[in-house]
């Protein structure tokens, strides 16, 4: 049996057993770390492999949150129903939005996704005023039924993150993964050797959106109280981008390493020195871009090089 499998199985067992030995703050820290690892991994699937930089990923986190709220608080269904509906709704919306938007390249795609996320945040804020319903709660926020088991959320996040990591590993080993990498490097050439580029991009976008929807649903249920500004917060997207970049775009482990590193550093620093911390993050980003543009994992491994400039 090779070493990687042994390490993998051991760490899985350790992660599963963790709540049996620790509680309170340690579990909270572990849960959030696992969530951020998952979010960054979601972002990496399209943006890391195919290099379509999505600046609006948080929109699916927010959609998932509000779907969960509607299902659980308004329709009084179970969390599991909410989780499935959040995944389905996010995935379908991602297909509808992604198919036209993914025709845009570079900064245009980034700006369009950003614009869509901001627009939807405002719609969520204004929905009740506008329609005269009291459905989403607007800026007053929305409250979930309470679940006090911290182990419950730990396991849900663990399962989600295991899921998206598995999908990434399978992608890396499949023709689909090659298609995404080819799109990153030369989209026209990829199309020219038979890759249905529009479909590959939309698939990656929709898969990552469904997971983001589930993360949103789960985190909101955990926090029990959400507002449009909290679940559609552009800083959530920015964190995913930076974590992935820091760890290495288009690698399986990069986003996980970047997310765990940045989240733990921030946990140590930012409660006490928020501005110093943010300025430091800025310096780290500048340093990474200038000195190791392939990220931590990419630089260690030699990753795959930057796509060349289009001719």
């Amino acid at each position: 049996m090779n070493l990687r499998i042994v390490i993998g199985l051991t760490s899985c067992a350790a992660l599963i057993a963790l709540p049996l030995f620790f509680g309170g703050y340690a579990i909270r820290l572990a849960t959030l770390t696992i969530m951020w690892v998952g979010l960054a991994t979601c972002w990496n699937l399209l943006s890391g492999y195919a290099r379509y930089i999505d600046f609006g990923s948080v929109v699916y986190f927010g959609i998932g949150s509000y779907i969960a709220f509607l299902v659980m608080a308004r329709l009084e269904q179970s969390f599991w129903v909410a989780l499935i509906l959040a995944a389905v709704a996010s995935g379908l919306i991602a297909l509808a939005i992604g198919i036209p938007t993914l025709r845009l390249k570079g900064a245009y795609f980034a700006i369009a996704t950003f614009a869509f996320a901001e627009a939807l945040k405002q719609v969520a804020l204004e929905w009740d005023n506008l329609t005269g319903m009291s459905l989403l709660g607007g800026s007053h926020g929305a409250t979930f039924p309470i679940n006090t088991s911290s182990a419950f959320f730990y396991y849900v996040f663990l399962a989600l993150t295991a899921g998206i990591l598995t999908i990434t590993i399978l992608t890396e080993r499949s023709a689909f993964g090659y298609a995404l990498k080819a799109i990153a490097q030369d989209e026209d050439a990829a199309e020219g050797v038979g890759v249905n580029t529009a479909r590959a991009k939309a698939q990656a976008y929709a898969i990552s959106a469904s997971f983001l929807g589930m993360y949103g649903a789960t985190e909101s249920y955990w926090l029990t109280y959400i507002t449009p500004s909290s679940v559609f917060d552009v800083h959530i997207t920015i964190q995913m981008v930076i974590m992935t970049l820091l760890g290495g775009m288009g690698t399986v482990l990069g986003p996980a390493v970047g997310a765990a590193f940045l989240y733990l550093v921030s946990e140590m620093l930012w409660a006490r020195f928020l501005y110093v911390y943010m300025a430091m993050v800025g310096l780290i980003i500048i340093g990474v871009i200038l000195f190791m543009p392939q990220g931590i994992v990419g630089s260690l491994r030699g990753g795959f090089p930057k796509p060349h400039k289009e001719a």
Binding site: A182, Q185, V193, V195, P307, H308
Partner: peptide, 16 residues
């Protein structure tokens, strides 16, 4: 595709 090996370049064409 500069980031793939020569073999992978051809492989992706055969696969798709």
């Amino acid at each position: 595709f500069p980031g793939l090996t020569v073999r992978e370049n051809v492989l992706i064409a055969a696969a798709y």
